[in-house]
């Protein structure tokens, strides 16, 4: 609709999106088929996900077809730096929280996450991490009384 009708070109983003949707939904439908569809009066475990998977797969194909008509938004740009550091921040939190406790984990994942912004400075984000660790400790452990490990197990 937004696109100029005279400039019909392939929309790569939509093509990939459509293919991805079709692949994922087909996978769901295929696995669901294995759970048994059952009858209408006694639906099997696979009935509902199978039909939704099939519907999704069909709509994925429709999106692909639309991509060739040059509809939809423009190309998407992946923010690699941000994706990498934010993901790493989550991974470190998941890995560290039980062995080293809240304080160290929050500092590490804050410093790592902050790198997503190019302007981040190490000292600044370490300070932020310490502040956050203190804040989280007050809210979640002290006030709400949640059983989150605070310091490393060995201590």
């Amino acid at each position: 609709m937004n696109a100029d009708p005279s400039r019909k070109m392939l929309n790569l983003t939509d093509l990939f999106a459509g293919l991805g949707v079709t692949a994922l939904c087909s996978a769901f439908a295929l696995v669901a088929y294995g759970y048994g569809l059952g009858g209408l009066a006694r639906m099997g475990a696979g009935f509902f996900p199978f039909w939704f998977g099939v519907l999704g797969a069909v709509l994925g194909v429709v999106i692909c077809i639309g991509a060739f008509r040059g509809q939809g938004e423009g190309e998407a740009r992946i923010q690699w730096r941000s994706l990498l550091f934010v993901s790493a921040s989550f991974v470190m939190f998941g890995l560290l929280i039980e062995p080293v406790g809240l304080v160290a984990t929050v500092v590490v994942s804050t410093v790592l996450g902050a790198r997503a912004d190019q302007e981040a400075r190490l000292g600044e984000s370490a300070l932020l991490g310490l502040g956050l660790a203190a804040g989280v400790w007050v809210v979640f452990v002290l006030l709400l009384g949640l059983a989150i490990p605070v310091l490393p197990e060995v201590l």
């Binding site: 934010v86 921040s89 994942s109 996450g113 902050a114």
Partner: peptide
């Protein structure tokens, strides 16, 4: 740049 690391932290905790 200060806000988003805090959001990450709150989401994780």
């Amino acid at each position: 740049r200060f806000l988003f690391p805090a959001i990450i932290c709150f989401i994780c905790v």
